[in-house]
Design a protein around this nucleic acid. Structure first.
Lengths: 136, 136
DNA sequence: AAACCTGTAACTATAATAGTTACAACAGGT
DNA sequence: ACCTGTTGTAACTATTATAGTTACAGGTTT
């Protein structure tokens, strides 16, 4: 199973999108909602910032989304967090002297790519706004 | 990223399906093709055996598939290896006193389930025979 | 008996993950 | 100017997952 960073990222973005009082929106406050450490939050926010999804300024509480929730797909968020681009690991260096070992990696890559594409399609079809609607 | 056990399982099943000389088909031989330790192979084979995909007997070299490659979907193999049933981890105990924290888990579960279903659909559509065809 | 195999428990090394401490630098109020 | 509170980031730690390894009991064949 992939780590929980993606879940945390969506949680953070949801909070930023729905919290109107920006002085309240500190990494401490967000950490309290996510139930983690403020540094973990600031680290993730740094990643999302680099990806151009939000802004922040040193010393000042509050974050601003740079993309409207309805225009922010879950796929864009996924790409932002720099998570793995494949689902399943493939074992290293299978034996090239064996007919199966020689071609298994390429074959599995093909299989896993088809799975990955289906996954991306699902994430592309949902936006942060859809998430917000379900949080009501 | 999910571990490489699924890849190893498909590799092992491919070898069993394509190796006609059964006396050659030992855990040592398979480990040599996969490039891992024989014990790792025997462990995985034990799992596949429990799932009813193949047979083996103590002391005797060779394994037999119990399902025809054309009838063995990659999804059935996935379920056999007892891998994770979800893609992304969801962080523990978000704050129930927060509107987002209260509902984020259920919401993410919904999102991840739609992704998971799409993945299963892909795996259901491919069989071990398809893999064998690509290994030629 | 000897050589080979499977099955499995127990241990180890490595890496990923999340959490934590610490602190530099910035901002705003008093 | 100072105090409080904030972001940004480096460095360290604890925990767990992963894969590999050693060891050995017990079956099979010759």
């Amino acid at each position: 199973m992939v780590n929980s960073r993606y879940s945390v990222a969506i949680h953070i973005l949801s909070l930023i999108a729905t919290t109107s009082d920006k002085s309240q929106l500190t990494s401490d406050f967000i950490a309290g909602s996510v139930n983690t450490n403020p540094v973990v939050v600031r680290r993730m926010i740094g990643v999302l910032k680099k990806a151009g999804l939000l802004t922040s300024r040193p010393g000042i509480a509050g974050y601003d989304l740079l993309v409207e929730p309805k225009d922010l797909t879950l796929l864009a968020i996924y790409h932002a967090i720099d998570g793995p681009e494949q689902l399943f690991a493939i074992h290293d260096e299978p034996n090239p002297a064996c007919a199966v070992g020689r071609k298994i990696q390429r074959t599995l890559e093909g299989v896993y790519t088809s799975v990955w594409d289906a996954m991306e399609e699902q994430l592309q079809a949902q936006t942060l706004q859809d998430v917000l609607d379900q949080l009501r």
